[in-house]
C-alpha cells in the first residue's frame, strides 16, 4: 500500500480532505489518487472492451468491406464490384423467399405465441398446489438446444413417422402431409415447431411481469365486483404492457436470426428451393458452403441492417411508450 492509499477518499466522494496535511501535499496526493483511479479504470475495462470490439464490432465492419467484392475467400479480395452483390441478392427469388419466410416467422411468432403464452401465464399465475412443477414442465422446451429439438421433431414428423401414424390411428389420415418436404407446408411446420420451443420463453417473461402486479389491485377490483376475466383484461393486461413489449422485441430479433432449427429439420433440397430458407440459412449456404464469400457477406450486411433498424425502431417505440408511464399512471 502506498501512502496515497492511506489518505484516499472514497471514489468520487467530495468529503473534506483529512486534517493536518499541508495544501501542497493534499494536492499531490489527490493527483496520485486520480492517476491511480485511471489506472484501475483502464486496467479493469480494457480486456472487456478489446474482446468486445474485436469480436462484435470489427466483424460487421469487415462484412461490409468484403461485401463489395467478388471473392472466393482465398487471398485478399481484389475484384471490386461495388454494390452488385446487394443487387444480386434482391434479384434472387430464393433470397426473397427467405425474406418472406423470416417475415412469416416474425409475425407468426408474435401473433401465435403472444396470446398462447398470455393464456398459459395467466393460468400458471393462479395459485394451486403443484404449480411450480407445472411451470418447470412448461419451460422444458425452451431450455433444450434448438438443434436437439429440431432433430426430435424431425423424427416425429418424418414421412410415415409418429405423427402420421397417430393421425391415421384416430381416423385423420386425410390430414397427413409431407410435413418437412412439401414446399407449401414446410414453413408452417417450422413455425409450429418454433412456437412449441419458444412459447415457454414468453411464459417465463410474462410470469415475471405478473409477479410484479400488486395483489392489492386485483383485490380492489374483486371488491368492486369485477369478474376474473374483467380483472385480467382491465387491470393485469395493461400492467403487463412493458413486459409484453420487451418480449416482442426479443422474439422479433430472434426470429430474424433463426438458423439452427431450419438447418437441422429441413431437407437441403427444400431449403435450396427457398421453401424453408431463412436469411441466416441462405447466408451460410451461399457464403460458407458455396464459398461465395463476397456475396454471403452482402447478405450478412442486409440481415444486420434489417435487424438493427427493426431493433432501433422498436426501441424508440418501446422507450416512448414506457416513458409515458404505462405502469404508474394507468393504475390510478
Amino acid at each position: 500500500m502506498t501512502s496515497a492509499s492511506q489518505t484516499r477518499m472514497p471514489a468520487g466522494g467530495v468529503t473534506a480532505p483529512p486534517a493536518g496535511l499541508r495544501p501542497g501535499a493534499r494536492a499531490a496526493s489527490r493527483r496520485a489518487e486520480t492517476r491511480r483511479k485511471w489506472y484501475e479504470i483502464i486496467g479493469l475495462t480494457t480486456p472487456a472492451v478489446l474482446i468486445y470490439v474485436l469480436f462484435v464490432l470489427v466483424p460487421m465492419g469487415f462484412a461490409f468491406y468484403y461485401s463489395l467484392f467478388r471473392w472466393r475467400g482465398v487471398g485478399p479480395p481484389t475484384e471490386y464490384v461495388g454494390f452488385r452483390n446487394y443487387a444480386l441478392a434482391f434479384q434472387d427469388p430464393i433470397f426473397l423467399d427467405a425474406l418472406r419466410n423470416n417475415a412469416i416467422i416474425v409475425f407468426g411468432s408474435l401473433l401465435i405465441q403472444g396470446p398462447v403464452a398470455l393464456g398459459i401465464a395467466l393460468l400458471l399465475n393462479r395459485r394451486f398446489r403443484g404449480r411450480s412443477a407445472f411451470r418447470l414442465l412448461v419451460f422444458v422446451p425452451y431450455v433444450l438446444a434448438e438443434v436437439t429439438v429440431g432433430i426430435m421433431w424431425k423424427l416425429i414428423l418424418t414421412d410415415g413417422g409418429t405423427l402420421d401414424a397417430l393421425l391415421r390411428s384416430v381416423g385423420l389420415g386425410g390430414f397427413v402431409q409431407a410435413w418437412l418436404a412439401d414446399l407449401d407446408v414446410v414453413i408452417w411446420t417450422l413455425l409450429f415447431v418454433l412456437t412449441w420451443k419458444y412459447v415457454g420463453f414468453a411464459i417465463i417473461l410474462l410470469l415475471a411481469g405478473l409477479s410484479n402486479v400488486p395483489p392489492e389491485l386485483n383485490e380492489a377490483a374483486e371488491i368492486d365486483g369485477a369478474s376474473w376475466w374483467q380483472i385480467q383484461r382491465h387491470v393485469t393486461l395493461p400492467l403487463l404492457g412493458p413486459t409484453i413489449r420487451i418480449w416482442m422485441f426479443l422474439s422479433m430479433i430472434g426470429s430474424l436470426q433463426v438458423f439452427d432449427m431450419v438447418w437441422v429439420t429441413s431437407v437441403p433440397a427444400v431449403r435450396s428451393l427457398g421453401a424453408s430458407a431463412t436469411m441466416a440459412t441462405y447466408m451460410v449456404d451461399n457464403g460458407f458452403f458455396a464459398r461465395l464469400w463476397g456475396y454471403g457477406n452482402a447478405v450478412a450486411v442486409i440481415l444486420f441492417v434489417i435487424s438493427f433498424v427493426a431493433a432501433l425502431l422498436f426501441q424508440r417505440f418501446l422507450l416512448r411508450r414506457d416513458i409515458e408511464g404505462a405502469i404508474t399512471r394507468k393504475v390510478k
Binding site: Y66, I253, S307
Partner: peptide
C-alpha cells in the same frame, strides 16, 4: 458513453456476424 457503447452490442445479432467472424 462507455456504458452505451457496451449496450449497443445488444443490437448486434451474433447470427448476422457469423461469416465475417469466421474470416476473422
Amino acid at each position: 458513453a462507455l456504458y452505451t457503447f457496451f449496450t449497443l452490442g445488444l443490437l448486434f445479432p451474433a447470427g448476422a456476424a457469423i461469416l465475417p467472424l469466421y474470416l476473422l
